[in-house]
């Protein structure tokens, strides 16, 4: 089915260097509407850098990246247009500690979408309910557990009603007992048809929801396959070695 739907993210021959270090080597990836992509790989393989290129928190130096038909260039207007449509969830949550949970969620709708505050509050409460913490709306992030903070971060991104959600190792900074509550929210989101790109080490999540698993190593996409094939019969030696370590 996904072959017929619209291309949401197109990455064509993308290269990136940090000084002399070649972090991304000829990356090609197509994400269609409704796709759930999991990017896996050892640390330092460039997977976080790749996902951060999609909303231009990092700039690529060669190749092309299209998001919802808009090519990412130096043009700040285009970058902001893309960022409005792409939600991102970070490893370290990055909630704004000087604002309440509700204010964290309404900030961007009010200032970027120019929605009246009352409407933004309603919108934010809707998404806080969806991540199952409406009762924490008036607390500050510092008063919440890690799992709760990450769910607020997901709600904050959803409040911009994005077309694509990016997850950059959303459970890596969490205590083990809190991982599930965040993954549950992500699974629900996937079931609702959200287009998602997730960098994660949670292979259970990859098996359960991913349409495709992309394996990166040393700045390259080594293997890209449906989860059943990826986990059962990996082709590349590096993939096999990685899976042997992680499973």
């Amino acid at each position: 089915m996904s072959e017929l739907s619209k291309i949401m993210i197109g990455i064509e021959h993308v290269h990136k260097w940090y000084g002399d270090f070649h972090v991304l080597k000829d990356i090609n990836l197509t994400v269609r509407e409704g796709d759930r992509i999991v990017i896996a790989g050892p640390s330092g393989s460039g997977k976080s850098t790749l996902i951060r290129c999609i909303n231009r928190l990092e700039a690529h130096q060669e190749g092309k990246i299209f998001v919802d038909g808009v090519e990412l260039t130096e043009d700040l207007k285009r970058i902001d247009a893309v960022r409005r449509e792409v939600g991102m969830v970070f490893q370290q949550f990055n909630l704004f500690p000087h604002m309440t949970v509700l204010e964290n969620c309404t900030l961007a709708p009010i200032w970027v979408r120019k929605i009246p505050k009352a409407d933004a509050d309603v919108l934010a409460m809707k998404f806080l309910e969806r991540v199952k913490i409406p009762e924490q709306a008036l607390k500050f992030p510092g008063q919440l557990s890690g799992g709760q903070q990450q769910r607020v971060a997901i709600a904050r991104a959803l409040c911009m009603t994005p077309k694509i959600m990016l997850f950059d190792e959303p459970t890596s900074a969490l205590d083990p007992e809190m991982i599930k509550e965040v993954l549950d929210v992500m699974v629900e989101l996937a079931e609702d048809g959200m287009t998602m790109v997730c960098v994660t080490h949670e292979m259970g999540f990859a098996r359960q929801v991913a349409d495709r698993v992309v394996f990166m190593d040393q700045g390259e996409i080594v293997e890209e396959a449906e989860p059943e094939i990826f986990f059962a019969t990996p082709k590349n030696e590096r993939t096999k070695a990685f899976l042997a370590q992680i499973l």
Partner: peptide, 20 residues
């Protein structure tokens, strides 16, 4: 990460600096 989170939701440089 604070500025990145603000930029990621589409806030401008001045909004990011002034509000976050």
């Amino acid at each position: 990460g604070q500025a990145e989170a603000a930029r990621a939701v589409g806030m401008s440089y001045w909004q990011t600096m002034g509000l976050i």
